[in-house]
Structure formats: C-alpha cells, structure tokens
Computed example of a mutant assay.
Amino acid sequence: MHRISFLCVLLLLPACGEKGKTPAAAPAKTEVIAHETELLGLTLTPQAVQRLGIATITVGTGRTGMIRETSGEIVVPNGSGGVPTGSLSNLAQIGAAQATADGEVARTRAQARLARIALDRASQLVAEEAGSVRARDEAAAALATAQAQAHVALEQRRLLGPSVATLGRQSTLWVRASVSGTDVTAISRLAPASVRALGGTDAGQPARPVQAPPSANAAAGTIDLYYAIDNRDHRWRVGQRVAVQLPMGRMQQGLTVPASAVVRDIYGGEWVYAQTAPNHYVRQRVEIASTGTDGVILARGLEPGMRVVTTGAMELFGTEFGVAH
C-alpha cells in the first residue's frame, strides 16, 4: 500500500512543475508597417503648382552618351611640356627656382648681346683689312655658343611654368582628372568634359582635352587626364577640387528621364514623382542603370508613357516631409 502511494506522488510531481512554469518569451516580434506602395499622394492646388514651378515630361525611350564621373583638381597649365603646378606643389620652392631661372635667362641674353657686338667689330676689322679672319670666326663661334646657352636657359625657365605671383590671374587653367588604368581606353579623348564645383547643381562648364606630359599614380593605379577650362571670369582657383564628367565612347538605350527628376533620400534611395492625375503626384522608387550626358537611364521603376516631374521635384519632396522651401 505504501508502495502504491509513493508511485502516485512521483507521478504528480512533474505535473505540478509544468503547471507553475512561466511560458518563454517569443524570440522576435513582428508588426505591420507601411509599404512603399502605400506612400502619400500629393494633391496641389493650381496656384501651388504655379508657385512651385512644377513641370512634367513623358517618360520615353532614348539614347544617351555614357559618362564617367570622377574628382579632379584645378592646376596651372604649362605650355612647354612641364608638369602642371597643383595645390600639392611647393610654391616657395617653385618661386625660388623661377627667380634663379629668370636670372640665368638675363645673364645668357647679355652674353649673347656681347658676343654679337664682338662679331660685328671683328667683321668690320676684316672688311677694313685691319683684323684677322680667324678672330672673326672665333667671334662667330662665341656668338653661336652664347645664343645656344640663352636658348637652353629660356627653355628651362618655361619648364617652371608661369610666375607664382600670376597663378590666380590665368585666363586658362587645366583640370587634372585621375582615371583608373582599366578605364582609360573607354574614355573618349576627342569629346569635351564637363566640370562643376563640388556640390554644385549647375550643368557644368565644358573643358576641352589637352595633351600634357604623362603622369600617373602607381600606388593607386590611376592615370591623369588633362582638360583646359576657360577662367577669364576668375571662377576657378588653383588647387580647387571639382567634379568632372568624362565622356565615354559608347551610347546606351533605355527609359530616360532628366537628372533633375531624380531625388534621393537620406539612405541613398532614388525616387521620382509621377503624375497620376492633374495636380496629383506620387513618389515612386526607381533604379538608375547609368548616367548619361542628356539624363539618366532607368533600369526599373517606370513604364513608357508615364509623366514625371522634372522641375519642382525637390519642392514636392520637401512638401511631403514637411521641409519648407
């Protein structure tokens, strides 16, 4: 009898333990959030559309020239084949070398003038039969030597570039763009590049390709390309960092929209505002396949025939998120 009671107690103990145990917490919690298809639609009054300057365009297929955007530096050109002067150059050292070269040019030119006077005197004495032909020939050789020295001094001075004092007054400057060695052959060296200030929203200023002494960075594996840019308005400064759009030698076809139609959020997402009805706009995500000279090529996100906002997209973006413009 006691044995049967003991077995019943053992059977009841696990049941009592399971009854008092607290259930384990779930490892994750899920909740419903808004989907990209449930974005806010913006309906503007005709007065608001006019005030914001909203303009739209119909999406269609097209071709655009491919470009490669990279960074560049404004440098001083050197017309005689020297290395252009950039912001990393030691201007004090260059200025001292230029002063020494200027003095050498003046000295050799003075020697050439003296040698010319000596030759004229020797030639006159020979003509009057008062001097020797040998003295005249020696004077002619001395003149040729002095002229050669003056030419060498002048070329050495040209290699040092414009005077340091005139670096900020150059009417034409060069842009040095570093390109990966694997991409150099894809860059068209016959078409102009486009240069704009970092952070600028303008279309950029054209810059024509120029031939310059070869320069490269072996550690980074890049090769320097040079372009000449007009600086008569003194817009650019030596050492200024700029954005350079280099033309590629090929075209790409697809759905195209102007670059002004694309807005980016803080996470780098790319969006456009599609017009779904008169004065009604919805933000729609797109994926850019490539950027061209006339706009951007889209990989997905839009269909041909849709209308997107080209002017005023940033204003709509601010209106949607409550940022004043």
Rank of each mutant, 00 (worst) to 15 (best):
1 M>S: 12
1 M>G: 14
2 H>C: 02
2 H>N: 07
3 R>G: 12
4 I>Y: 14
5 S>P: 04
5 S>V: 12
5 S>Y: 08
7 L>C: 11
9 V>N: 04
9 V>L: 14
12 L>G: 03
15 A>P: 00
16 C>T: 12
17 G>E: 12
20 G>S: 08
24 A>M: 06
25 A>Y: 03
28 A>M: 09
28 A>R: 12
30 T>K: 12
33 I>M: 08
33 I>W: 05
41 G>R: 05
44 L>T: 01
44 L>K: 02
44 L>V: 03
47 Q>V: 07
47 Q>L: 14
53 G>F: 15
54 I>F: 08
54 I>A: 09
59 V>A: 13
61 T>G: 12
62 G>F: 06
63 R>Y: 12
68 R>H: 14
70 T>M: 10
70 T>P: 14
72 G>K: 01
73 E>T: 10
81 G>K: 13
84 P>H: 09
87 S>Q: 10
90 N>Y: 05
92 A>F: 08
93 Q>V: 11
93 Q>M: 09
93 Q>E: 15
95 G>I: 00
104 E>C: 05
107 R>G: 04
111 Q>N: 11
111 Q>V: 02
117 I>W: 04
118 A>Y: 04
120 D>R: 13
123 S>P: 00
127 A>S: 14
127 A>D: 13
130 A>I: 10
131 G>R: 07
135 A>C: 05
136 R>L: 01
137 D>G: 02
139 A>M: 02
141 A>Y: 02
143 L>W: 02
145 T>D: 13
145 T>R: 04
146 A>K: 03
150 A>L: 11
152 V>Q: 15
157 R>L: 14
162 P>L: 05
163 S>G: 11
169 R>V: 09
170 Q>P: 07
171 S>E: 13
173 L>T: 01
174 W>V: 06
176 R>H: 05
181 G>S: 10
183 D>Q: 10
185 T>K: 07
186 A>D: 11
194 S>N: 07
194 S>Q: 06
196 R>N: 09
197 A>W: 00
198 L>R: 08
201 T>I: 05
201 T>M: 06
202 D>Q: 02
203 A>C: 03
204 G>H: 04
205 Q>D: 12
209 P>E: 05
210 V>W: 03
220 A>V: 03
225 L>D: 06
231 N>L: 08
232 R>E: 13
237 R>W: 01
237 R>C: 00
238 V>H: 01
241 R>T: 11
244 V>M: 02
244 V>N: 00
247 P>V: 14
248 M>P: 03
248 M>I: 10
252 Q>F: 03
253 Q>N: 13
254 G>F: 12
259 A>G: 10
263 V>K: 12
264 R>M: 07
265 D>L: 06
269 G>Q: 11
270 E>V: 05
272 V>P: 04
273 Y>L: 03
274 A>T: 14
276 T>G: 07
278 P>T: 09
278 P>N: 13
281 Y>W: 09
281 Y>I: 09
281 Y>T: 06
283 R>E: 15
292 G>D: 08
292 G>E: 06
292 G>C: 04
294 D>V: 05
296 V>R: 00
303 E>H: 11
305 G>E: 11
308 V>C: 07
309 V>S: 03
311 T>V: 14
312 G>N: 12
314 M>C: 01
318 G>R: 04
321 F>Q: 08
